[in-house]
Simulated scan of single mutants.
Amino acid sequence: MGVYVSIRGWLECDETQLTAVREVIASHEDNHYSNGWGSPRRHTSWTHYIFYGADIRASALDWFVDQIKEIARIPASDDDGDLVQGLLLVSHEVEGPSEWQVRDGQLFTSPADSRHRFLDG
Rank of each mutant, 00 (worst) to 15 (best):
M1G: 12
V3K: 10
V5Q: 00
V5N: 05
S6A: 11
S6I: 07
S6P: 01
W10L: 14
W10M: 12
C13E: 02
D14L: 06
T16L: 11
T16W: 01
Q17H: 08
A20P: 02
A20F: 06
A20D: 07
V21G: 01
V24T: 06
I25M: 03
A26R: 14
A26W: 15
E29M: 00
N31W: 06
Y33L: 11
S34W: 08
N35E: 14
W37K: 02
G38R: 11
S39N: 10
P40C: 07
R42P: 04
H43G: 10
T44Y: 14
W46G: 11
W46I: 14
T47S: 09
H48R: 14
Y49D: 08
F51G: 00
Y52I: 04
G53A: 12
A54P: 01
I56L: 03
A58F: 13
A60P: 02
L61M: 10
V65C: 00
A72Q: 03
A72K: 03
P75V: 15
P75C: 12
P75F: 10
A76I: 08
V84E: 00
Q85R: 12
G86T: 05
G86Q: 00
G86D: 04
L87N: 12
L88W: 04
L89C: 05
V90M: 06
E93P: 00
E95G: 08
G96Y: 08
G96P: 05
G96Q: 09
S98F: 06
W100D: 05
W100K: 01
Q101R: 13
V102D: 03
V102F: 03
V102C: 05
D104N: 15
D104Q: 15
L107M: 01
A112M: 03
A112Q: 05
S114C: 12
H116D: 15
H116F: 15
R117G: 08
F118D: 05
